[in-house]
Amino acid sequence: MVFLEGNRCYLRTLEEADVSAFTRLVKRNKRYWSIYEPLHDDEYYTESTQRKKIIESVQRMRLNREYSFAIFAMGTSDLVGHISIYSIKRLPFSSAFVGYSIDKRYIGQGIASEALALIVKFSFEDLSMHRIEAYVSPNNMGSVRVLEKSGFEREGLLRKLLYINGYWEDHYLYAFINDDY
């Protein structure tokens, strides 16, 4: 288990015991999150599916391929989001992607920015990553601000990258290089 602590939130790698709380988070934000990511079929929002996803993430963590964290509001056991460092590639790339989702009830409280800062620190200092990348919809101004505030730089526009709810959507590519950390 990996534990990372900030001022507004703390992160802990997801484990199977989180399945009920995590499934409630995913269900509660089904429509909100589907604005910028694909809406899944009903089976996705079940404990069975989320348990499988958590077990797979734990297996990938053991192989140093992914670290999936639950985000908790500081001083509580309230699971308020999820953040992952994934698709970890070693040399010659030494890179990974980061992705995150915050409960709509906690948007605008600085939790996403702090969680991302904790992941950047962990990625560069503990995993020795050289580059962290993120995709973001140009329409997701909140997430664009989080990335830019955290030191990520926009490197380009990836045209029609992701199929979301019936449409191919453009995404920006952002990156944070260890040299700039």
Rank of each mutant, 00 (worst) to 15 (best):
M1N: 10
E5I: 03
G6F: 01
C9K: 04
Y10D: 00
T13I: 03
L14G: 12
E15H: 08
A17H: 12
D18V: 06
A21S: 04
T23Q: 13
K27C: 05
K27A: 01
R28F: 06
Y32S: 13
I35S: 14
I35N: 08
I35Q: 12
D42P: 12
E43Y: 15
Y44H: 14
Y45D: 11
T46E: 03
T46Y: 07
E47M: 13
E47D: 15
Q50D: 04
R51Y: 03
R51L: 09
K52F: 10
K52E: 07
K53Q: 12
I54Y: 02
I55P: 10
S57C: 08
V58F: 01
Q59P: 03
N64P: 05
E66M: 10
Y67N: 13
Y67L: 07
S68G: 06
S68F: 01
A73V: 09
T76Q: 09
T76L: 09
S77N: 14
V80L: 00
H82I: 05
Y86M: 04
I88S: 00
P92G: 05
A96T: 03
V98W: 00
G99N: 08
S101K: 06
I102V: 15
D103T: 08
Y106Q: 12
G108D: 10
S113R: 01
S113L: 07
E114Y: 01
V120M: 06
V120Q: 01
K121V: 11
S123W: 10
F124P: 10
E125D: 10
D126Y: 15
R131W: 02
A134V: 10
S137K: 11
P138Q: 01
P138M: 11
N140G: 12
N140Y: 07
M141I: 12
M141L: 14
V144R: 12
L147I: 04
E148M: 14
K149D: 13
E153P: 10
G156V: 02
L158Q: 14
L161D: 01
I164G: 06
G166F: 04
Y167E: 13
E169K: 13
H171D: 00
Y172E: 07
L173R: 13
Y174D: 01
A175D: 01
I177E: 00
Y181S: 12
Y181W: 14
